[in-house]
Write a protein that binds this DNA or RNA. Structure first.
Lengths: 129, 129
DNA sequence: AGGTAAATAATAAAAATTATCCTTTAGAAA
DNA sequence: TTTCTAAAGGATAATTTTTATTATTTACCT
């Protein structure tokens, strides 16, 4: 992935991507805590720079969540997100928004090429408690 | 609105709400620039505190937009947003997401009570240029 | 009108992000 | 392999954004 975008393959970058793969979604501060376990001397500036590079070339996506901090994920097929108000967990879900987007396009005259949908509620586990 | 939520009615707060009514959506920094025209000595801290108060009691909503800063709007009936990648304009659109959300709920087991959808593309005006 | 809790302004402090600058390193080329 | 160089990392300073503190002012209830 890195090589495809002319980014040098460094251990730090591999570490960041590895954590993103494992966790699915993670905030900057969580990521910094994790990566420090493997690279105890990594600089916060390096982390920010790399996140930004990878966002620019679309290796990563930022997920903006109502009432909480952004999380980052490795780019994959288009999907939406679900966030649990109780346990704060963030999960992917693949939905078909074609009809809705088509309708929005007709109604507004916009031509859309991206969408970001976050559904907030309570996850199945937290519903029991 | 303010009185209903036990917030005192101050000229600064009325000024903020008035700008929000006029602009529809506005970022903190834009709002600060605007409000300074009417209240040249208003403190940035006052602005942040009031925005946060009004968010807490749901007089306002924060709209988180991919690749740009959040904007704020006066709460109204549920709706989605459209952002133009060329002119950066943000607009409301009312869409029916019931089907999609119902489907998401069945598929995931979540129970949802809120949704945030932002569609990104090009507005009709910018399509001409 | 007077009293009081809440709001404002000014400012400091904290948190988040970006810039700078010097050292190190990945990866191309010899 | 070794060498060379542009790019990346680390340390830290500087910005930017947001929140906290405190003294003064004001909305609004009697």
């Amino acid at each position: 992935m890195l090589r495809e975008h002319n980014l040098k393959v460094t251990p730090q970058r591999l570490g960041i991507l590895s954590i993103l793969e494992d966790t699915g979604h993670i905030s900057i501060e969580e990521l910094f805590t994790f990566i420090r376990k493997d690279f105890s001397s990594i600089s916060i500036a390096t982390l920010y720079k790399n996140i930004n590079f990878m966002l620019e070339v679309n290796i990563l996506k930022e997920v903006k969540i109502p009432n909480s901090k952004s999380k980052y994920e490795i780019s994959k097929d288009e999907h939406s997100h679900m966030v649990c108000r109780k346990c704060q967990k963030l999960e992917d879900i693949t939905l078909c928004l074609d009809g809705v987007i088509e309708h929005a396009s007709e109604k507004s005259g916009y031509s859309f090429d991206e969408n970001a949908l976050v559904l907030s509620g309570v996850c199945p586990q937290c519903q029991l408690a």
